[in-house]
């Protein structure tokens, strides 16, 4: 068995373990829902408790308060959960296998493992999980586990089935330190954007729940009650997204420097350049929206969601189907 075959074996194992982690995280969400159900049953019997819960989820949170600790402003506090811990442990295990797969692929090729679609996907998803695990040490975002493992599974599945290519040497146009820098930073930025996307999406769910609760109407997706308030989620999403934005700004510049070296012009509105620019502009819009009256909250969250959709589009559709100088999908 050669290094590349080992890498493939390791990757498939990682996918198996991610799938188990996904199941554990899903069980956790289900548990959250039933926990909320129990609390709501209690509330029906004690109207005061219900009033208190509503007050807690109302818009009283201030920026200064949330910055202390997150997760303690959930409408329905949610205790320890075995499945959550199992989910995280499995994710760490899968991440280690994933890392091994990536490193082995790099060793097999004798270069960085991000020079074609298969490798971008493998390294990009590895970075998504890495960012997730690092952020977990600073904030309890374990409730995003289903999203992260699910997204990574889908992307890896597509990569393994549709984008797989054999190890090949780098074409001269890619032999540059800028490949190492530019593509790596872009993938890292994508990791942050992915997390920001998930936070913004949950923020929208949470906001909807909060509005329903405020109008004293029934809510669906009960587990949302165990998650931080929409204001907290918005702030978290913002922090994650601006890191992504800075990395993306750097990606854009590094790409221009490389384009100047390889093609003789730093900017030529090539399709891939156009999409990198579009993504940058959407996120600049997102940052502005956060500072514009009437655009904070759900509207800015939608911009973050559109931004990440554009990132996925840029990776999955533009690379494969659009014509341009960046014909490096290896397909």
């Amino acid at each position: 068995m050669n290094l590349n075959e080992l890498s493939i074996l390791s990757l498939y194992s990682a996918m198996g373990v991610y799938a188990l982690a996904f199941i554990a995280f899903s069980i956790d969400l289900a548990r959250r829902s039933s926990a909320v159900g129990a609390v709501q049953a209690d509330e029906l019997s004690s109207p005061e408790a219900r009033g208190a819960a509503e007050a807690a989820s109302g818009g009283t949170t201030t920026l200064t308060r949330i910055s202390t600790r997150i997760a303690n402003d959930a409408a329905t506090p949610y205790g320890r959960s075995a499945s959550l811990r199992v989910g995280v442990s499995l994710t760490v295990l899968a991440w280690a296998l994933h890392l091994a797969a990536d490193v082995l692929r790099g060793l097999a090729a004798g270069r960085v493992p991000w020079a074609n679609m298969y490798e971008f996907a493998m390294t990009g998803t590895l970075l998504i999980v890495t960012v997730f695990l690092i952020v977990l040490t600073r904030a309890d975002l374990r409730f995003l586990g289903t999203f992260v493992t699910g997204l990574v599974l889908i992307l890896l599945g597509i990569a393994a089935l549709r984008f797989y290519v054999e190890v090949a040497p780098l074409p001269p146009a890619l032999q540059s330190v800028w490949l190492v820098i530019h593509v790596f930073v872009a993938s890292l930025g994508t990791g942050f954007f992915a997390l920001g996307f998930a936070l913004s999406a949950v923020q929208l769910l949470q906001f909807r729940r909060e509005s329903l609760v405020a109008e004293a109407r029934a809510t669906r997706l009960r587990f949302v009650a165990t998650l931080p308030s929409s204001a907290t989620l918005e702030n978290l999403a913002y922090r994650v997204n601006i890191i992504g934005f800075i990395l993306w700004t750097f990606t854009l510049m590094a790409g221009s420097i490389w384009a100047e070296k390889a093609w003789g012009r730093y900017w030529g509105w090539d399709t891939k350049e156009v999409w990198t620019f579009i993504i940058w502009t959407i996120y600049a819009g997102y940052i502005h929206a956060r500072a514009t009256r009437g655009w904070r909250g759900s509207r800015s969250a939608w911009l973050a969601i559109i931004g990440f959709s554009a990132v996925l589009f840029n990776f999955g559709i533009v690379n494969v189907f659009f014509k341009g100088l960046h014909a490096y999908s290896g397909l």
Binding site: G268, W269, D270, T271, V274, W275, F277, I278, T281, I282, A284, G285, H288, A289, T292, R293, G294, W295, L303, V318, F322, K323, G324, L325
Partner: peptide, 25 residues
Amino acid sequence: RTALFLLLLLAIAAVPGSLVPQRSS
């Protein structure tokens, strides 16, 4: 608000150039 609007408009306006071939590139 206008800055935001123009930024988003710029993002949208850049899209067609990736769908239709461009004389410049």
